[in-house]
Amino acid sequence: MATDTLSRARLLAGLRRYAETAFEAGVAVDSNTSLLEAHKVAYLLQGTGLDLGYRFEAGHYGPFSSDLNRDVSVMEGHYLIGFGDGTGGARADLRLLPAADEAERILAEDHLFRRSWLKVARAVFGYEYPDGLELLSTVHYLTARRNGRFGYEDIAVEVAQWSPRKRRLFDSNDVRGAMASLCEAGLLDAPD
């Protein structure tokens, strides 16, 4: 669980930067982010090698961390609002509060965060919405568990087998595009 100041600052800065990116891309109507997107941003940051202290498992919407939910709950009312009692689920609308601005000051000299964020920002370009992040993180989650041995079609089959929801939302072309984006950003090696 990300309880130390540096990990919390990295999470908050990642969420703020993602929300601003989605807003600037015209995908979001404000600078809020959903809990689902928070999970995916944290997951992708960790996928760059930046350890935030979360363990992710396969969830309904892709990689999920119950520890992250606990941290968001703890930050409720001071760094962000919108999680409430947790009953809003994945679509809970999180808004960062002014206290979260301190994260950028803490990270001013954090070159590891800056490098990680640049990779995530590159990967999420064009995917700055909940389903887009779900696709990216699901594809990354599946390929990362294959020790570098995967092909587009293999991962497309695994995405479709994950759940009826994913089978309905994401076809093999979507998976191919997500894999290309992740590879170009340096979050994955090129497939076989």
Results as ranks from 00 to 15, higher is better:
Pro98Ser: 10
Trp117Tyr: 07
Asp101Arg: 13
Leu80Asp: 00
Ala103Gln: 07
Ile81Met: 05
Glu104Pro: 01
Leu112Tyr: 05
Ser137Glu: 13
Lys119Ala: 15
Gly132Glu: 02
Arg95Phe: 09
Arg114Asn: 11
Glu104Tyr: 01
Val139Ser: 02
Leu136Gln: 02
Val139Ile: 02
Ser137Pro: 09
Gly89Ala: 14
Leu94Ile: 14
Tyr152Asp: 06
Phe150Thr: 03
Leu135Thr: 04
His140Cys: 00
Ile81Cys: 09
Gly126Asn: 05
Phe125Gln: 12
Thr87Ser: 12
Phe150Glu: 03
Ser137Asn: 04
Glu104His: 10
Glu128Val: 00
Asp93Met: 04
Gly86Leu: 11
Lys119Val: 12
Ile106Leu: 11
Gly151Glu: 11
Asp85Tyr: 07
Thr143Asn: 04
Tyr141His: 08
Glu109Asp: 15
Pro130Ser: 02
His140Phe: 09
Gly84Thr: 03
Gly77Arg: 10
Gly84Trp: 00
Gly77Pro: 09
Ile106His: 03
Leu96Ile: 11
Leu133Met: 13
Tyr129Lys: 05
Ser116Arg: 11
His140Val: 01
Leu133Trp: 01
Gly148Trp: 01
Leu97His: 08
Leu97Glu: 12
Glu104Ser: 13
Pro130Val: 06
Asp131Tyr: 04
Glu102Gln: 11
Phe83Gly: 05
Arg145Ser: 15
Val124Ser: 08
Tyr152Gly: 14
Thr87Cys: 06
Ala103Ile: 02
Tyr127Gln: 03
Ala90Lys: 05
Arg95Asp: 07
Arg95Gln: 14
Ser116Lys: 08
Ala123Asn: 04
Glu128Met: 08
Asp101Asn: 14
Phe113Thr: 06
Ala90Trp: 09
Tyr79Lys: 00
Thr87Arg: 10
Gly89Cys: 13
Phe125Tyr: 00
Glu76Met: 13
His78Arg: 13
Ala108Pro: 10
Arg145Met: 03
Leu136Thr: 03
Gly88Gln: 07
Leu118Pro: 00
Leu118Arg: 14
